[in-house]
Design a binder for these strands. Structure first.
Lengths: 217, 217
DNA sequence: GTCTATATCACGATAGAC
DNA sequence: GTCTATCGTGATATAGAC
């Protein structure tokens, strides 16, 4: 693998910084020098700070798409496909702590961006809508064929996003809640199992007072 | 009710601004004039921007505590108490769109604050830990008496936080996902029902291909 | 308790040499 | 494609009059 181009190096550094401190919290001077460049050189590669931020977001969404698309395309019951999609999504989020944080910050940092009518912004927006639409149609299909309960598709999707994206973005608070790190192999594997278990069976056991000592972990 | 004191007015305005644009995105000048004051007068009421931010957070956590505490203290099965706690939490989050956003931003904006060793910061931290501990012990109890599945307490708690806090913080993205507003009375009521339904029954129906047309909405 | 004025600094962005 | 220098602006915070 050849060494990173300046553009790629900038994107890499920017992803970490934006995930950690948010759009407004990152200064281009600091970012440039962390990428081994002078501040002005950034403007040769990206038209503005907002354009750089959107390029970072786009790259992350593209990575997630690449993982989830094939998982949803697999044949099988809706339950099986859901398991695969959750595994793929969690793998994408667990790959690096920046991913979930960027996604979660992007929820409300739209307000922060100076212009929202640029072509880059519309590209990110349509990528996100495509991903949401894909997952939504998939849940709909499961409800339609009777395999899933008659849930509100949108609310179910929100719950799944919360269970995955929020979790891996939750940082120190999440470590307090779970009592340990979030990104070790064991923690990620446990999260996958717990989310799938929660989705499949629900929190409340079907037989309240019966054989309380058997279920798998 | 007497008119708001300057301090209260500042806290009110600051809560909206910090929720909307984040810690780094808010300028004290703009904030002060929105509160009807000169910029320098803020420093008479709060020692620094960070202290103001922490005061805002503390006030929000206090409001949530006030709602959830009584709900958890009620007698009943773990399932009933869970329903009450979820209702109380969702009511607190739905009261004003700032609440969930502030909480979610607080997850990662700790990195943004200049000092984390001030007494105010420790007050917020201990308030948060108390709330988490309370909810955790409550789930533990439900698992211990066999009413809940043998889930990982921390992961279940993370899922519940995601289903509630994330949802009401999700803004425009959440509106795209659910296909409508998040804070209308109907949307909040539907969210309560969906979250409780999801928690109780799980997404996958117990009898995959049977009576697919009956369950409640 | 609020104000004006100011100190100090960092920000995003541009100009233009090399 | 990277650099130095600089513009204009707005940031947090302080000093001190009223």
């Amino acid at each position: 693998m050849q060494p990173l181009s300046s553009r790629e190096k900038i994107l890499e550094v920017a992803e970490r910084r934006f995930a950690q401190r948010g759009y407004a919290g990152v200064g281009l001077r600091e970012l440039a020098s962390a990428a081994g460049l002078g501040k002005s050189s950034l403007f040769h590669h990206f038209a503005s700070k907002a354009a750089l931020y959107l390029a970072v977001l786009d790259r992350v969404l593209e990575r997630i798409e690449t993982r989830i698309g094939p998982a949803l395309a697999v044949r099988g019951t809706a339950g099986e496909r859901l398991d695969r999609a959750l595994d793929a999504l969690i793998d994408a989020l667990a790959e690096h702590p920046t991913v979930a944080r960027l996604l979660l910050r992007a929820l409300f940092e739209d307000d922060d961006l100076p212009e929202t009518e640029t072509p880059e912004a519309r590209a990110v927006d349509s990528r996100l809508r495509a991903l949401i639409g894909e997952l939504g149609r998939f849940i709909d299909a499961g409800v339609a064929n009777g395999e899933f309960r008659k849930v509100s598709t949108g609310d179910a999707l929100q719950t799944l996003i919360g269970a995955t994206v929020y979790h891996f973005a939750s940082g120190e608070v999440g470590e307090v809640v779970t009592g340990g790190p979030l990104f070790t192999r064991e923690a990620v594997a446990r999260r996958k199992a717990e989310v799938k278990g929660f989705v499949h069976h629900g929190l409340q056991s079907p037989q309240p007072q019966e054989r309380p000592k058997e279920s798998s972990q």
